[in-house]
Amino acid sequence: AQASVVANQLIPINTRLTLVMMRSEVVTPVGIPAEDIPALVSMQVNRAVPLGTTLMPDMVKGYA
C-alpha cells in the first residue's frame, strides 16, 4: 500500500516543514506520497495541521 505523509506534531499555520514534523504512514484517504517528504522540507503549510493529520496537496503552499 502507498504510504502518505502524516503530521508528527501540531504544525502551526505558515510553518516551514522540517523532517521531524513528518512521518510516513499507510492511511485512507491517501495524501501526499511519502517519497515526496524530501521535497516538502522548507515548504509552508497554509493551515494548522493537527498531530496525526494526513497532509493533502492543498495544505502545502507551492506543492500542488
Results as ranks from 00 to 15, higher is better:
K61Q: 14
I32H: 00
A1E: 06
G31H: 02
T18L: 08
A7W: 03
Y63D: 04
N8K: 06
P33K: 13
E25Y: 06
I32N: 00
T15A: 14
I13K: 10
V27F: 02
L19E: 10
R23S: 06
I11N: 01
I13V: 15
A64V: 14
I37D: 01
K61A: 13
I37Q: 06
P12H: 09
N14Y: 08
M22E: 01
P33M: 07
N14G: 14
Q9I: 09
S42F: 12
S4M: 02
V6K: 04
V5N: 01
A39K: 15
E25L: 11
N46K: 06
A48F: 15
L17Q: 00
V27N: 03
G52S: 09
K61F: 15
A3C: 05
N8P: 01
R47I: 10
A48S: 13
A64P: 10
T18H: 06
A3S: 09
V26H: 07
S42H: 09
V60A: 01
P29F: 04
I13D: 15
A7H: 01
P38A: 10
T53K: 08
A64F: 06
I37L: 12
M56L: 10
A1G: 14
M56N: 09
M56Y: 08
V45Y: 00
I13Q: 14
T53E: 13
L40C: 03
P50G: 09
S42C: 05
P33H: 10
L10E: 13
R47C: 05
Q44Y: 14
N14I: 03
L51Y: 14
G52Q: 04
V6S: 02
A1I: 15
K61L: 12
R23V: 06
Y63W: 13
L40N: 00
L40V: 06
V20S: 06
L17C: 02
G52N: 13
M59T: 06
A7S: 12
V27E: 01
I32M: 03
R16G: 14
L40T: 01
P12D: 09
V30Y: 14
V26F: 07
M43G: 04
D58L: 10
V60K: 01
P50N: 09
V26D: 09
M22T: 02
M56E: 11
Q9K: 07
I32D: 01
I13N: 11
V6W: 02
R47Q: 10
D36G: 09
V26C: 05
L55A: 00
A64I: 13
I37H: 03
Q44M: 14
M22H: 00
Q9D: 12
T28M: 10
V5W: 02
R16P: 11
G52E: 06
M43D: 04
A34P: 08
V27D: 01
I11H: 00
V27L: 05
N46D: 11
P12E: 15
S24M: 07
N8A: 15
T15Y: 08
R23G: 10
S4I: 01
A39F: 07
P57N: 04
V26R: 08
P57L: 06
V41I: 11
I32F: 03
L40K: 01
A3W: 07
M56G: 05
Q2W: 12
M22I: 08
V49M: 06
L19C: 03
R23F: 04
L40A: 01
I37P: 01
G62H: 13
R23C: 05
L19D: 09
V30K: 11
V30I: 14
R16V: 15
R16D: 06
T28L: 15
Q2L: 12
V41N: 05
A34N: 06
L40F: 00
G31W: 03
L40D: 00
V60E: 01
S24Y: 05
A1K: 10
Q44V: 07
P33N: 07
D58K: 11
V20I: 14
V26N: 09
D36E: 15
A34Y: 07
G52A: 06
D58T: 10
N14H: 13
E35V: 14
G52R: 04
T53W: 12
I32K: 00
M22K: 00
L51T: 15
L51C: 05
L17M: 07
N8W: 04
P33Y: 07
V20A: 14
M22W: 02
V26Q: 07
V27K: 06
T54D: 00
R47E: 08
L51N: 11
P29Y: 03
T53A: 13
A3Q: 11
P57E: 09
M56R: 08
V49R: 03
V20D: 14
I11V: 09
N8F: 04
G31N: 01
V60H: 00
I13L: 08
A3F: 15
P33F: 08
Q9S: 14
D36L: 10
T54W: 02
A1F: 10
A64L: 15
E25N: 15
M56P: 01
L10N: 13
V45C: 03
L10S: 14
L17Y: 02
R47D: 05
R23A: 09
V60N: 02
V20W: 11
G52H: 10
Y63Q: 04
L19G: 07
P29H: 04
G62S: 09
P29R: 05
V49E: 02
A48Q: 11
D58M: 09
P29C: 03
S4V: 02
N8G: 14
R47A: 13
M59N: 07
Q9Y: 13
Y63N: 04
M59G: 03
T54V: 07
A34L: 03
L10W: 12
I11Y: 00
A34D: 08
A39Y: 11
R16E: 09
V41K: 06
A3H: 08
V45R: 00
A64D: 12
V5P: 00
Q2Y: 14
I11K: 01
V60C: 03
G62N: 12
A3R: 15
K61C: 04
P12T: 09
I37A: 07
P29D: 05
V41T: 10
R23Q: 05
E25R: 14
L40I: 15
Y63I: 05
D36A: 14
A64T: 15
L55I: 10
A48I: 09
V41Y: 05
Q9H: 08
Q2C: 05
A34F: 06
K61T: 15
V41H: 05
L51S: 12
M59Q: 05
V49I: 13
A1Y: 13
R23P: 02
S4W: 02
E25K: 15
T15I: 05
P12A: 12
V27W: 03
A64N: 14
T53M: 08
Y63P: 04
P38W: 07
D36N: 14
M21W: 03
M43W: 07
L40Y: 02
V27T: 11
V45W: 00
A7D: 01
V26T: 08
Y63F: 06
S4G: 04
L55G: 00
P12F: 07
S42Q: 13
M56V: 06
Q44I: 15
I13F: 13
L40S: 00
A3T: 07
M59S: 09
A3P: 15
R16T: 14
V20N: 12
Q44W: 10
T15L: 05
A7V: 06
S4D: 00
T54F: 02
I32A: 02
M21A: 05
P38H: 09
T53I: 11
V49K: 00
Q44L: 09
D36I: 08
V26L: 12
T28V: 11
N14F: 14
N14S: 09
P33V: 12
M56D: 05
V26I: 14
R16S: 12
A34Q: 14
V6I: 12
V5S: 03
T54H: 03
P57C: 04
M43T: 06
V30C: 04
M21S: 05
A34S: 13
R23L: 05
L51M: 12
I32Q: 00
N46E: 08
G62P: 06
E25Q: 13
M22Q: 00
V45D: 02
A48Y: 15
P12C: 04
P38F: 11
T28G: 06
V30P: 11
N46Y: 09
V6N: 00
G31M: 02
K61H: 15
A48H: 11
P12L: 09
A64E: 15
M21I: 03
V5L: 03
S24N: 07
A1N: 12
V49T: 05
I11C: 02
P33E: 04
E35C: 05
P12R: 07
T28K: 07
Q2M: 07
A64Q: 14
M22G: 00
A1D: 09
Y63M: 06
I11G: 00
T18V: 11
L40Q: 01
K61D: 15
G52F: 04
V45F: 01
P50I: 07
V60M: 05
G62L: 08
V30D: 06
T53P: 01
T28H: 15
L10I: 14
T54A: 05
Q2V: 14
P33D: 07
E25H: 15
M21F: 04
Q9L: 10
A39N: 15
Q44K: 12
Q44H: 12
L51W: 15
A34I: 07
T18R: 07
A64G: 10
S42E: 10
I32Y: 02
R16Y: 14
